[in-house]
Every structure is written in C-alpha cells, then in structure tokens.
C-alpha cells in the first residue's frame, strides 16, 4: 500500500514524533508506514484521515504492483 503521509506531514511542517503523538503511536511506526514497510490498520488509517481532514483514499492508495 502506498501513502502520502510523508508529504502531508512535510506540508504541515510536522516531525515524525509530532505525528506519532497525534496518532498515539510510536515514531518508529510512523517511519515504517512512511517507508511502506508497515500497512496501518483501518482504525489508524481513519485516524490519520481525520487528522489531515482528508478522505482516506487521498492518503492511502492500493499498490497495484503488489497484485
């Protein structure tokens, strides 16, 4: 799964630690999601969507290469 977390975070000038705090996860988890090494659960993805005030599909997209 691809995501725009890193871009959205940079646009808001937030650090990984600040985003981790806002989503109530560890900084390592944010790093792993940004690098595409870990796919968040639906509740966490919805939480991120609420935080960025965007539809979930604008943040997370299906990685078609994985199919």
């Amino acid at each position: 799964m691809k995501n725009r977390l890193k871009v959205l975070r940079a646009e808001r000038d937030w650090t990984q630690a600040q985003l981790a705090d806002a989503l109530n996860v560890s900084r390592q988890t944010i790093n792993a999601i940004e690098k595409g090494k870990f796919d968040p659960s639906l509740p966490l993805a919805f939480k991120a969507a609420r935080l960025f005030k965007m539809p979930i599909e604008e943040i997370f997209q299906e990685d078609t290469e994985e199919q």
Binding site: W14, A20, D21, N24, V25, S26, R27, L51
Partner: peptide, 12 residues
C-alpha cells in the same frame, strides 16, 4: 494537534 494520551509517556 490535540492528543488524548502520549504514547511515549505511557510506554515509558
């Protein structure tokens, strides 16, 4: 960026 509880604090 309001937070309910800080993950790092709880973990520590």
């Amino acid at each position: 960026m309001n937070k309910v509880k800080n993950y790092t604090t709880v973990n520590q």
